[in-house]
Design a protein around this nucleic acid. Structure first.
Ligand SMILES: [Mn+2]
Ligand SMILES: [Mn+2]
Ligand SMILES: [Zn+2]
Ligand SMILES: [Zn+2]
Lengths: 139, 139
DNA sequence: GCACTGTTGATAATGATTACTAAAAACGTC
DNA sequence: GACGTTTTTAGTAATCATTATCAACAGTGC
């Protein structure tokens, strides 16, 4: 957070992302911020989400459905439920070893890696049946 | 490939994806196919890329820069070079064990997973210096 | 107050993808 | 190989997400 002013719109945008665990889209954040700051502009939301991500205060991630933001800026992986579409945080696996192995095999300098899991969450398993693509709200 | 006609546009689109290792975008495939079928429509390219991906003949993947297609439909992971932007195939790691562990920890039914690596490829390391975001062609 | 700088809201512009539709191609049947 | 039916295509319009532009505004220091 080195030298970045915390204006009201900016602060509310940051709070909106941190106050949810849905890994929201810009549109979702926009809707939330508008409750408290009705005149905020969608461009302001996009602009500040990018600024905050560049500062490392937020994380930015792209999935099949577009841009999303993550209030948890610590390294972690994600599990996406194909039933309800929710994205859960999961602990990152043994990082070093995995990267070192790939580097040895390929000659690449491996600086980072990220794993995405897919399947059905506890709720969706309990509700039984085959993976019904219900939910899938885009948030 | 159950019941899917192989028309000329469709065949050329499939070949275009298979004949490159750049994990092309739809626009890239469009440019390639046009060399042999100048009147092909961009919509036809998109439509058939999706059809072929649904059939499992191609793989579809989304990264930070949008939609890409992969002629290699077998399970594998990817390494993205932050220097030149190229995406390399890498072998998938011990799949079963990783999924089983996460399932045990969380209660999720883990059906699939995918790891993305980031770093600098051999070429870019040799050309030394800090990761200069040259290349980065969107293909 | 006044210049300076960074931020905002409003809106236009861009770019990627999808939807629509009339015409053409492929198919199955005779 | 003509014929009715189904699928696919080319061309284009429409949609959607994101980015760019810019005049007005707000904070800061003098
Ligand atoms: Mn997360
Ligand atoms: Mn690949
Ligand atoms: Zn679920
Ligand atoms: Zn490289």
């Amino acid at each position: 957070m080195r030298g970045l002013r915390l204006t009201r719109p900016r602060r509310l945008i940051l709070e909106a992302v941190r106050d949810t665990d849905v890994h929201p889209t810009a549109a979702f954040v926009y809707r939330r911020v508008r409750r408290r700051l009705p005149r905020v502009s969608l461009a302001t939301v996009y602009r500040n989400l990018r600024v905050l991500a560049a500062e490392g205060v937020l994380a930015e991630r792209a999935d099949a459905g577009g841009l999303r933001f993550d209030g948890n800026a610590e390294p972690h992986d994600h599990f996406t439920c194909i039933g309800c579409g929710r994205i859960h945080d999961v602990p990152v696996r043994r990082g070093r070893a995995v990267r070192a192995r790939l580097a040895a095999q390929t000659g690449f300098e491996v600086l980072n890696h990220r794993t995405e899991y897919f399947g059905r969450c506890g709720d969706c398993r309990r509700q039984g049946g085959r993976p019904s693509p219900k939910g899938q709200r885009r948030s």
